[in-house]
Design a protein around this nucleic acid. Structure first.
Length: 438
RNA sequence: GCGGGCGUCGCCAAGUGGUUAAGGCAGCGGCUUGUGGCGCCGCUAUUCGGGGGUUCGAGUCCCCUCGCUCGCCCCA
């Protein structure tokens, strides 16, 4: 036998058994966005590398060491998208969407980051995200967060916490950054190596360090909040009050710093304590400078993205799993014999045409075997066609659930529901449609 | 990129250097060659992720490699 091939590391197959849950999430999200008047946008998985270098920031880990980047046959540097925002903004600029007024957009699909795989973290992973382009008011921050929060609630995810912070205006951040770097340099010797390395590249991220010694030291560091302008303060308080008015609970986390350069003002994460190290289910914030940075008109914006794999992980842990319902066939077509098989194939098509989920047994094995499979698959009804029926233009209809309801003696001889009801082939589609509707 | 744990049939899983690699689930076949859910019987790994080594002998020990997993890092 030839050597077996495997998927690439961190590239995961979604098998039929888990697809129902994914579709449930996608359908819920789609409907949620429809009602929120947010339109879907689909962008290519592959973009020019510069889009991410310029949009996300050269100094970030995502761009610096996690991208799938290669030269195509035309020697262009291409990158598999590591996130969705840059592409959406690029598309909005490229097609002049912004000159048609504010845009409310959502997207979903695979993203790629070359990281060490872990629970809730794959190299190809999936996000659903929302971008509100052309919205400056603090109310849009509140609305964006509410949309995320309500979507998760609609999906029945429990135990979530919303963490909130503000990064201030870009000027605030620049001012604070200078202050912070000076302080960090003064305490360089007491910092862990990772943090030392970040002083120049991405000093704000030092605040988020999990190193205990560094955290302790940081208690004496300058606070971003103190560097905020009055205006930024006011804005943040509007966001907080807005959330309070909606009854959405949150905690302030001054250490919450986004990894991507384009964020300013509001930053937030929705986390779960059930996910281990990768606790963030949804993260986002305001990015007023990005559109301009990518060559578009100055456009304020806010957005977020949620991680599908992490969400699915949480949903799999929950008790009620309503999405598991609909996998069974409604009708199982038992058929055997040359004439019967031809008739069954045709009947199967007609039934499917009327909207019924029909499993056609193609094994040609004994009637008993076929019925057994019908039962194991959880079919509601079985249609039995042998050559006798085929010759007479009829089929036998059996209710596979009736006997189960009446005879639950547990271990007693099966209480079979008789040979079934004899029906004309021509009447079957209508009859079944009626039965299944009732 | 750095550390720790793990890797036996599609899934779960016994096995801790010595004769033919348990068992359960699922699948397939039979008892029942035209009738389901229970039951019984049988079949399904010359092989223990892959490669090399130690040994008279290895799934069991060692090395390398691939993969999974947990943490660091990063982030959704």
């Amino acid at each position: 036998m030839a050597e077996k091939l495997q998927s690439l590391r961190g590239m995961v197959d979604l098998l039929p058994a888990s697809i129902a849950l994914w579709q449930h999430v996608e359908a819920t999200a789609r409907d949620h966005f429809r009602r929120a008047r947010i339109a879907e946008i689909r962008t290519p998985l592959l973009e020019v590398t510069e889009l991410f270098a310029r949009g996300i920031g050269e100094a970030t880990d995502v761009v610096g060491k996690e991208m799938y980047t290669f030269l195509d046959r035309g020697e262009r540097s291409c990158t598999l998208r590591p996130e969705g925002t840059a592409s959406v903004v690029r598309a909005a600029i490229q097609h002049g969407l912004l000159s048609q007024g504010p845009q409310r957009l959502w997207y979903g699909g695979p993203m790629f980051r070359y990281e060490r795989p872990q629970a809730g973290r794959q190299r190809q992973f999936h996000q659903i995200g929302v971008e509100l382009l052309g919205f400056a008011d603090a109310r849009s921050d509140v609305e964006a967060i509410a949309i995320a929060w309500d979507l998760l609630a609609a999906l029945g995810v429990g135990g979530l916490a919303l963490e909130l912070n503000t990064l201030g205006a870009p000027e605030d951040r620049t001012r604070y950054r200078t202050e912070l770097v000076a302080w960090l340099e003064a305490h360089r010797q007491q910092l862990d190596p990772d943090s030392q390395a970040r002083i120049q590249t991405n000093p704000l991220r030092v605040l988020d360090s999990k190193h205990p010694g560094t955290q302790e030291l940081l208690a004496g560091a300058p606070e971003l909040a103190d560097a905020l302008s009055g205006e930024s303060h006011e804005r943040f308080s509007q966001v907080r009050h807005g959330l309070e008015a909606l009854g959405i609970p949150f905690t302030l986390n001054p250490r919450l710093v986004r990894g991507l350069d384009y964020y300013s003002h509001t930053a937030f994460e929705i986390t779960s304590d059930q996910l281990g190290a990768q606790a963030t289910v949804c993260g986002g914030g305001r990015y007023d400078g990005l559109v301009q940075q990518l060559g578009g008109p100055a456009t304020p914006a806010i957005g977020w993205a949620l991680g599908m794999e992490r969400l699915v992980l949480l949903l799999q842990q929950s008790e009620a799993q309503p999405w598991m319902a609909a996998a069974a066939p409604q009708v199982y077509l038992v058929n055997r014999g040359e004439r019967a098989e031809a008739v069954a194939l045709q009947l199967c098509r007609e039934l499917r045409r009327t909207g019924i989920a029909v499993e056609l047994d193609a094994s040609g094995s004994a009637f008993g075997k076929q019925l057994r499979r019908a039962d194991r698959q959880g079919a509601a009804w079985a249609l039995v066609i042998g050559d006798e029926e085929a010759a007479g233009g009829v089929a036998l209809l059996k209710d596979l659930r009736r006997a189960e309801e009446t005879g639950d003696e547990g271990g007693a001889a099966p209480d079979r529901a008789g040979p079934g009801q004899r029906l004309d082939l021509a009447e079957i589609p209508a009859q079944l449609a009626h039965l299944l509707a009732g």
